Simulated assay, not measured.
Amino acid sequence: MAIKRLVVMGAPIAHSRSPYIFAELFRQYAMRDAVYYQLYADGSASIPLLFDGLGLYGANVTSPLKGTAFASVNWVSGSAKALGAVNTIVNRDGALYGYNTDPIGVLGALRQLAIDPSRKRCYVLGAGGAAAAVVCALVRLGARPTIVNRTHARSLALAGRLGASAMRSEEITPIPGDLLFSCLPPGSDLPTWDWNAFSWLFDSVYYASPLEPVASVHSLPRCGAQEWLYWQAVAAFKIFFRGESD
Rank of each mutant, 00 (worst) to 15 (best):
K4F: 13
L6K: 04
V8W: 10
A11P: 13
P12Y: 05
I13E: 11
H15D: 00
S16L: 02
R17C: 09
Y20V: 12
I21R: 06
I21F: 14
L25T: 01
R27Q: 03
Y29N: 07
A30N: 12
R32E: 14
R32D: 12
R32F: 15
A45D: 11
S46I: 09
S46T: 12
L54N: 01
G55E: 03
G55I: 02
L56Q: 07
A59Y: 11
T62Y: 04
G67E: 15
A69G: 11
F70Y: 15
V73M: 05
V73Q: 02
S79G: 06
K81F: 15
L83M: 08
G84Q: 09
A85E: 06
A85F: 12
T88V: 08
I89K: 02
R92P: 10
G94E: 02
Y97A: 06
Y97F: 13
Y99K: 08
Y99D: 13
N100P: 04
T101H: 05
V106M: 01
V106D: 00
L110F: 10
Q112C: 07
L113A: 01
A114F: 14
D116Q: 01
L125P: 15
L125D: 04
A127P: 15
A127H: 09
A133R: 00
C136I: 02
C136L: 07
A137I: 00
L141G: 11
A143L: 03
A143Y: 12
R154T: 05
R154E: 05
A157F: 09
L158I: 05
R161T: 14
G163Y: 12
A164V: 03
S169Q: 11
E171Q: 14
I172H: 08
T173Y: 11
P174S: 02
I175Y: 06
I175A: 09
P176T: 00
C183A: 10
L184C: 09
L184S: 03
P186K: 10
G187P: 11
D189R: 03
A197I: 02
A197W: 06
A197K: 06
L201C: 04
F202N: 00
D203C: 05
S204T: 10
V205K: 03
A208P: 01
S209D: 04
P210K: 06
P210N: 08
A215V: 09
A215F: 15
S216N: 09
S216P: 08
V217N: 10
S219D: 15
P221I: 00
A225P: 14
A225L: 04
L229S: 04
L229P: 07
Y230N: 12
Q232N: 13
Q232E: 15
V234L: 14
V234Q: 13
F237Y: 14
E244F: 15
S245P: 13
